[in-house]
């Protein structure tokens, strides 16, 4: 009988001790904010286009960190970003729903611009300069290609043009393992400059 009592008492006391230590530890290791959201936000392209269904990149990152959103919603980020987020969250990669288009830059046809400033207000990164009754124009280096300026324009004078490929930004492609095929391909591709 006393053995049983000793057993119960000692086990109970030990459990109480463990619980006390853990309670203190919980207070000590309290986490403020959501560091995961910041890490996911750092992977996103910051286009702020809203194609993911959230009003901006940070809200999407917060949703993914909280487990409320899937990892495959970012369209401008494409497959690369999806894989990076999946890797960070430790989940299986999921196929994207729509294909990311080639990067494009907005262009205002200034002759038709009426100076209404609606596109300026719509741009999430302030990439359009202009003032009321003055021409508006897009700063090419700042435009993220989110296309949020197209709709508000009352005279439909904004075009989305493909981003020009600069020779300074050209990089070698992955080598084809059939090297001879690559050489023949390149020769055929080339129609002769000059």
């Amino acid at each position: 009988m006393s053995n049983l009592l000793y057993g119960l008492l000692s086990l109970g006391a030990f459990a109480l001790l463990a619980g006390l230590i853990l309670a203190i530890a919980q207070k000590l290791f309290r986490i403020e904010g959501d560091p995961m959201a910041d890490k996911i936000d750092a992977l996103l392209p910051q286009t702020q286009c809203g194609q993911c269904g959230f009003p901006g990149c940070k809200p999407y990152a917060t949703a993914v960190a909280g487990g409320e959103a899937d990892v495959n919603h970012c369209v401008p980020g494409g497959e690369k970003t999806m894989l990076q987020i999946a890797d960070l969250m430790g989940v299986e990669p999921k196929a994207l729903e729509e294909e990311a288009a080639a990067p494009r830059i907005a262009f205002v046809r200034e002759d038709e611009c009426i100076g209404c400033t609606l596109c300026i207000k719509a741009c999430p990164v302030d990439a359009i300069v202009g003032a009321p009754k003055q021409y508006h124009t897009v700063i090419v280096d700042h435009c993220t290609g989110c296309e949020l300026c197209i709709e508000p324009c009352p005279v439909d004078c904004i075009d989305m043009l493909t981003k020009p490929e600069l020779i300074e930004h050209w990089s070698w492609p992955l080598p084809d393992t059939k090297r001879s095929q690559l050489a023949h391909q390149r020769r055929g591709q080339h129609a002769g400059h000059a």
């Binding site: 392209p45 910051q46 286009t47 702020q48 901006g56 999430p124 990164v125 302030d126 993220t144």
Partner: peptide, 16 residues
């Protein structure tokens, strides 16, 4: 390059 552009875009968006 893309990271630098994204960082700059984020700053522009936040200051906006």
């Amino acid at each position: 390059r893309e990271q630098a552009f994204a960082e700059a875009s984020r700053q522009r968006s936040e200051s906006r």
